[in-house]
Amino acid sequence: MRAVVANAVNTPLSRVERDVPDIGTGEVLVKMTACGVCFSDLRLIQGEYPFARFPVIPGHEITGTIAAVGDGVAGHRVGDAVGAQFLYDSDGSCDYCVSGDQILCPHKRITGVVADGGYAEYGVFKGAFVTPLPSGLDPVAAAPLMCAGLTAFNGLRRAGTRAGSRVAVVGAGGIGALAIRYAIAMGARVAVVGRSRSGDDRAKELGAELFVAGAETDPAAALKQWDGGADVILNAAPSTAAGNAAVGGLAPGGTLVFCGYDSGPVTVPSQSMVLSRLRVMGSPSGSPHDLRDTLAFSATHGILPEITPIDLDDAPAAVDALATGRRTHGRSVIAFG
C-alpha cells in the first residue's frame, strides 16, 4: 500500500510502500476513503509533541470502510462506513475512561502521533474508537469533522452555548468556520473576530451578524458593545494571544474557551475574572461519544466544511503549505480512489 511517513522532527515527509497491516484482537482494518490535513500534522513535524513516536504515519481526520474485523470487536461489520479521530485509544480503566471522558485519560494514545494514522491506503484502529458515519454525509467532505468539527462542536457545548447565546469566534479558518455554523445551528447569535477586514464578507456569508477586524479595532471593546458582551468566546485561531486580546469582551458569567493556541501564556485580568465570574477553559477534541454527537448534529443540520481534495502524493506539499500560510479553498483532504 502507499503511505506517507514522518520519520523525525524537522524532516520532510516521505512517500513509501508498505504491506497492508495485520489486525489483532479488538482491532479493525480500515480502507481509507479520505484523511484531512490538519494543523496538528504540522505540529508533529515541528516537534511540538515530545511524546511522538517516529517513524509514524500522520493523519487523524479519517473516513473509510471496514475491510476486516478482529476478534472481540462488537458493532462493526466489513463494509461499514466509519470515521477515526485524534484519540486512538485509552487505558479503559481510569476514572475518566469509566465516565466516558477518554480524551482526558492520562494514558491515551494519539492517532498519527504515537499510532499510525490516515496518510495511507489502509490503517488499523481500535474497534471501540472508530465511529459509524451517519447516512447522507459525504465521506470525503466529512473527514475534517473528525477533528476540526469535533473540536468546534465540543468546545461550544462545553462552554455552555445555547439558543440565544452571544458567541464570538476568534479566527474563521478550519475550526472557526465550522464553529460559526454550529453556533448558529444551536440558536446562538454570532460575531467573528478576524485579523483584517478581508474576512468580513466571508463571516457574513457564514451567518455572523458582527465582524471585528482585530488589526483595526480592539476586539474586547467591540465585543463589549455587542449587547453587553459575548457569553462565549471560542478561540479557534492558532494563537493564544488572539484569545487573550478578546477576553475583555466577555459578558458577566461568560466563558473563554481555547481550542486554538500556541506556546504563549494565557493572561486574564484577575479582578474582572473574579468580579464578573468569568471562566477560562481549554477544550481538546473529544471522546468517542462526543464524535457521535458531532456527526449526528452535522448530518441533521447539513454542516460540512469546504474542502480541496488532493492525492496522497500531494500530502507533503499540503503540510508545507500550512507552515508557509499558503491558502487553499477550504481544508485540504486526501481523497483515496
Rank of each mutant, 00 (worst) to 15 (best):
G24C: 10
T25C: 15
T25K: 15
T25Q: 15
T25S: 15
G26H: 12
G26P: 10
G26A: 15
E27S: 09
E27Y: 09
E27I: 08
E27D: 12
V28L: 12
V28K: 09
V28Q: 04
L29V: 05
L29S: 06
V30C: 04
V30N: 10
V30F: 09
V30L: 12
V30W: 06
K31E: 14
K31L: 08
K31I: 06
M32E: 13
M32P: 11
M32R: 09
M32W: 07
M32S: 11
M32Q: 13
M32K: 11
T33P: 13
T33V: 14
T33Y: 08
T33G: 10
A34T: 03
A34H: 14
A34S: 10
A34R: 07
A34D: 05
A34Y: 06
C35N: 07
C35F: 10
G36P: 08
G36W: 12
G36E: 08
G36C: 04
V37D: 08
V37A: 09
V37Y: 08
V37R: 11
V37I: 11
C38A: 04
F39W: 13
F39C: 08
F39N: 13
F39R: 15
F39Q: 09
S40A: 10
S40R: 03
S40D: 07
S40I: 05
S40Y: 04
D41A: 00
D41F: 00
L42R: 01
L42E: 03
L42C: 01
R43D: 13
R43H: 14
R43Y: 03
R43C: 05
L44G: 01
L44Y: 00
L44S: 01
L44A: 00
L44T: 00
I45A: 02
I45P: 02
I45R: 12
Q46L: 01
Q46W: 00
Q46D: 01
Q46S: 04
Q46H: 03
Q46T: 02
G47E: 05
G47F: 01
G47C: 04
G47Y: 00
E48W: 07
E48P: 07
E48K: 10
Y49E: 05
Y49K: 02
Y49M: 02
Y49Q: 03
P50H: 02
P50F: 02
P50M: 03
F51A: 11
F51Q: 12
A52E: 02
A52P: 07
A52Q: 07
A52S: 14
R53S: 14
R53V: 14
R53W: 11
R53H: 15
